[in-house]
Each structure stands twice: as structure tokens, then as C-alpha cells.
Amino acid sequence: MTGTDSDTSASMYTGTGEAHAHAPLSYRFLTAVWVGLMVLTAVTVGVARVDLGYFNVLVALGVASCKALLVIFFFMHLKYENLLIKGMVLTAFVILAIAIGLTFVDIGYRY
């Protein structure tokens, strides 16, 4: 360990405290989110048994996105973070959406 570490650690945590100063989420609420995730999983499985053609993929991706949002906003506490962190997460998802979208420029028009 160097002498620098303690300084760095001290300044690292300065100012981040307020970002986590929200009340802990109740078990009841977290359980409700979990039930929601289970229901959405059932929807994915159910829809996969119906032939919607091209829309099968869109529905699957849509449901998966909803599940990801639930996990990120509540289990990972994004809802209670500041705008900078929200912006960063949004950027990641926009890039992912563009990557998937541009891949469909190939797959959607291939034949």
C-alpha cells in the first residue's frame, strides 16, 4: 500500500454519500418487483409458443427490456441515483439499442 491510497480513498467517497441517502426499499416492494419479473418471464415463454413471425423477436426483446429496467431501477437502485449516473446508464442502453437495430438492417433485409 502506498501513502497515496488513503488520500485517494478519502477523496473518493467525499460527496457520494448523498447519492445513497434514500430510505431502504421494503421487502414487500422488492417482492412485488420479483413477482413482476416472474410474470414477465412467463409472458416470454408463452409468447414463444405463438407464431407472430417477425414480431416474435420484437416481443421477446421488449419483454426482456422491461425486465432489465425493473432490475436496474429497483434492485440496482438506479431510480435513486443522480442524473449523471442515469445518463451514463441510458447511454449504454442507447448504444446497445443502436447495435441491435443496425444488426436488423442486415437480418431484416437479407432475402
Partner: peptide, 11 residues
Amino acid sequence: SGMSDTAVLVF
């Protein structure tokens, strides 16, 4: 590679 012509144009 055989991907769609639309994709070739866009990329």
C-alpha cells in the same frame, strides 16, 4: 459475407 445490400449501403 452475404449480408443484405441495405446493410452494405448503411455501413
